[in-house]
Amino acid sequence: MSRRAAVRETGANVVEGGAGGVEWRCRGITWDGGVPGLRWHGGRVSPLVYGRDLAFRAVGVRRCAGARGTPCPLGAGIPGRATGGRCPECARLDRAHSVAADTLADDPRPYRVYLAWFGPGITKVGITGEARGDSRLLEQGAVTFSWLGRGPLMAARRTEEVLRQALGIPDRVPYERKRAARHALPDAVERAREIEELHRRAGAVGGWTETLEPLPCEPRDHASAFGLDRPGGLPPLAGTVTELVDGGVVTGRLLAAAGPDVHLLDPTGRCLALDTRLMGGWALERAGGGAGSAVEGTAFSVPVSGVVSPDRQQGLF
């Protein structure tokens, strides 16, 4: 049985902290093995299992997660609404070693250019290391994608820029639009059709095939991995968590996860989205846990904002 299937069938408690005096400080979500899980300082991972209850309380002060596997030397406090989860110094160190910062021009490893689909009319072009497989697409919340080409890093970077300009598609899509679009997805055939059309248009753009090896259009769909293949889809999005606070409780039934987001049905019946990047650096402990549901009698008590409409893409910005 695959790890993805095993997690769907068995699973584990989502938040395991708060017992025996052991502090469980969160590091956000991981998609290792193609399934979602919460990462903790020290390397532990708690699987996120669709259909199970999630109930936790944030405790104390949110601390910087450090950079490149190294703890923050200052243990700096960071704002609750910061999605980066790092203090300014650690954020600079982390970005200095990233592909996005263009500091690895001589990287000899092969890279791939991809076309990603997040919702009707919401697409992007991007690059990822070939050795990472589709991990980058899972981390970004791409519902459907296809590879376009493979080759050296700088050739892939140039192709990304050429296609952005020629096709009028961005290399970034705001998470607010991605998460809102998941609540009104067309079927898999329509999703694949949009990617196939974008792939055709990209192939017709001249020049990039001279430096990259073109790859055939083979749409791959993540709806099952994200939990978005449930009958009837997700309920309408009622709001998004804006930050965690000391003593604040998040509680609800886990419906889906995509990219950094989890989608929950709270005890009052609202479907809410939580960006797990907001969890990074918080110490978390169990909340609720009555004889019935883990969320029974537990109130959702962190700030929630309204809904952003997933308007169709209008040019680059």
Rank of each mutant, 00 (worst) to 15 (best):
G126D: 04
A105H: 12
S135P: 00
A105F: 07
D134A: 13
A116D: 08
Y111S: 02
L138G: 01
A101I: 02
H97S: 13
P110R: 12
D107A: 07
R95W: 14
P108Y: 13
S98Y: 06
I122Y: 00
P108D: 15
A105N: 06
G126S: 12
Q140A: 14
T103M: 08
R95A: 11
E130P: 01
K124E: 04
D94I: 01
A100K: 14
D134N: 12
I127P: 00
P108S: 13
R109Q: 09
L137A: 04
G119F: 00
G133Q: 07
L138F: 03
G121P: 07
D102K: 06
A101C: 08
A105S: 15
P110L: 12
I127R: 05
A142N: 10
E130A: 15
A142S: 15
I127F: 06
L104Y: 04
L138P: 00
A116I: 01
I127V: 14
D94W: 12
T103I: 01
I127L: 15
P110F: 09
S98T: 10
T144Q: 08
A105R: 15
A116E: 03
R132Y: 07
F145G: 02
P120K: 04
L138V: 03
L137M: 15
Y114H: 09
R109S: 14
W117L: 14
G119Y: 00
F118S: 01
G133A: 13
D107I: 08
P110H: 10
D106L: 10
D102L: 12
K124W: 00
R112F: 12
Y114D: 05
K124N: 06
V143R: 08
L104M: 09
T128C: 02
R95G: 07
T123I: 11
A116F: 00
V99M: 10
A131W: 04
A142G: 07
P110C: 10
A101Q: 11
A142Q: 08
R136M: 08
D94F: 07
D106V: 10
F118L: 08
V113P: 04
Y114T: 02
L137W: 08
A100W: 11
P108L: 11
F145D: 02
T123F: 04
G133Y: 12
L115S: 02
R109T: 12
A96N: 03
K124A: 05
R95S: 13
G141D: 04
L115N: 04
T103A: 13
P110W: 04
